[in-house]
């Protein structure tokens, strides 16, 4: 009962935030509201038992997306001009589409119904087979990395391509001087807290990376958290200091290396006589092989995601205000 109440309240808050985002003109305010919107949906995902998804949404939606939006607003403009056309036609289109979609939901299985068709096909097999065949308690990890390993490889490739695309669009220049807003240099609390938190964030990223088999987490979340640590440091101490630790050339290699580790695991299992990404052949014991394969490809995912996010951030801050 409480679960339903929290679910309904969070959805109500999401709706209000959504309306506020659509109405407001100040892009800075809209960016902050978007961050709140993401945090609310991450909370909702926890209530709906999707803990892995919640971790990802909190790190990406509320974290990195907000930073990229802020960087864009700082490099373009904060105020939105009023539209020239009346909003009547779009409003009509939206209301008509919405009404059609709501009519479509009337046939849908109700929320929480265990007999809904979605729960009767492959999902029970995944849940049933995972403990014995994969030996990994977190079923989300086992489906992501093992059962649907091909999909995940595709997704990592998409992320790699996006990193390359941003690089092609924004280019890259190393900052010689540690250009930084002098105002931030006066904010002692911010700088001290950043220094305290920086190692903890990196430690947490490693925990999320290697504990993803047992609890919520994995390569995607860990890579994002890892990159967030460095972005936080760059915000408080200047991008030049971060680029001295992780220069751009290293990131470019890391970005490709992660993807190559993933593909390499697939080729290794083919060389050993199995199919592409058939992990159970990697060790004498099939379950150990599965665990080894999952750990390796999650590592590849983590490296690529962290490198791509940092490269995107470097690209954004290298453009003039």
């Amino acid at each position: 009962m409480e679960e339903h109440l929290i679910n309904n309240v969070l959805l109500g808050l999401l709706m209000m935030t959504g309306f506020a985002i659509a109405r407001m003109r100040s892009l800075l305010a809209v960016t902050m509201l978007t961050s709140i919107y993401s945090l609310l949906s991450a909370s909702l995902f926890v209530v709906l038992d999707a803990v892995d998804v919640a971790l990802t949404e909190a790190a990406i939606g509320a974290g990195i997306s907000t930073i990229l939006l802020l960087a864009t607003v700082a490099r373009t403009t904060d105020e939105e001009k009023a539209p020239r056309h009346t909003p009547l036609l779009p409003l009509f289109v939206v209301v008509a589409t919405g009404a059609a979609l709501i009519y479509g939901t009337l046939d849908m299985p109700h929320y929480g119904d265990p007999m809904a068709p979605i729960h009767l096909h492959v999902a029970p097999t995944y849940l049933h087979v995972t403990p014995e065949e994969i030996g990994v308690p977190n079923v989300v990890t086992s489906v992501l990395a093992s059962f649907r390993g091909y999909d995940t490889l595709g997704e990592v490739t998409v992320i790699f391509t996006a990193g390359a695309g941003v690089l092609a669009l924004l280019g890259y220049r190393t900052r010689r001087r540690n250009s930084q807003n002098p105002e931030i240099r006066k904010m002692v609390v911010l700088r001290v807290i950043t220094k305290l938190f920086f190692p903890l964030i990196l430690l947490f990223a490693l925990y999320v990376q290697f504990h993803g088999d047992y609890g919520p987490g994995g390569g995607f979340q860990a890579g994002v958290i890892f990159a967030t640590g460095f972005i936080l440091y760059a915000l408080a101490y200047g991008i030049g200091n971060v680029q001295r630790i992780i220069p751009y050339g290293k990131l470019r290699i890391m970005m490709a290396a992660g993807l190559l580790i993933y593909i390499g695991v697939g080729i290794e299992s083919m060389l050993l006589g199995g199919k592409f990404l058939e992990y159970r052949i990697l060790a004498d014991d099939p379950v150990t092989g599965q665990q080894l394969g999952i750990m390796l490809i999650e590592l590849g995912v983590g490296i690529t995601v962290a490198a791509v996010i940092l490269i995107i951030y470097y690209g954004f801050v290298s453009r003039k205000h």
Partner: peptide
């Protein structure tokens, strides 16, 4: 247990959404 399959699909979709958003924002800057 709740169904893990949609969780997997959406987890990766969130990361891909970040990649596409970043690309779109880079285009806006240009």
């Amino acid at each position: 247990y709740s169904n893990p399959l949609p969780h997997v699909l959406i987890l990766t979709a969130i990361v891909v959404s970040l990649a596409t958003t970043a690309l779109a924002l880079a285009l806006v800057i240009r």
